[in-house]
């Protein structure tokens, strides 16, 4: 059997992922995370009496902490596999990917294990993030002056 014919055979028996359902769940959960973040910003700026810009930094720190903490407790992966991009796209996903990789290599030492492997998944995000931020920054200067 040639490769193309086999590809068709495989496609025949490969189950379809339920994309619409996944998208709706991700939309709802992602939205809720956004609402939660906004509530945090409002609370921080109200109670700590700080400008919104600083309060949003506090909000990010809180979400990152929660992502890491729940990963360490061992049940954030279940949330993520349920909500998928609803929890991966927000900053919680970034925290989760770093913390899970760190936990994995905990036993292999601080330098050779945790340090070397912490960015196994998140490294790509940082690299792409920095590069695209640079180009979008350039675009902004060129267009908006």
């Amino acid at each position: 059997m040639d490769k193309n014919k086999y590809k068709e055979l495989v496609a025949k028996y490969t189950p379809k992922e339920n994309r619409l359902y996944n998208a709706i769940i991700a939309f709802l959960v992602g939205g809720l995370v956004g609402v939660f973040g906004q509530i945090l910003i409002d609370l921080y700026s109200y109670f700590l009496n700080i400008p919104t810009k600083e309060a949003s930094v506090f909000m990010i720190i809180t979400l990152v902490f929660l992502g890491c903490f729940l990963t360490c407790l061992g049940f954030f992966d279940k949330f993520v596999s349920f909500a998928k991009c609803g929890l991966i796209i927000p900053i919680t996903g970034f925290a989760h990917s770093m913390m899970s990789a760190t936990l994995e290599y905990k036993k292999e030492g601080i330098v050779t294990g945790m340090g070397a492997n912490m960015f196994k998944l998140a490294g790509t995000v940082i690299m792409c993030g920095v590069v695209s931020a640079y180009f979008f920054g350039l675009l902004r200067i060129i267009i908006m002056g």
Binding site: T14, P15, E17, N22, T71, G74, F76, D77, K78, F79, V80, S81, K84, L87, I88, H96, S97, M99, S100, A101, L103, E104, K120, L121
Partner: peptide
Amino acid sequence: RQPVEYGGPKKKT
């Protein structure tokens, strides 16, 4: 594959 605690979605296969 990926770290065990990482919950990224997996395919049905």
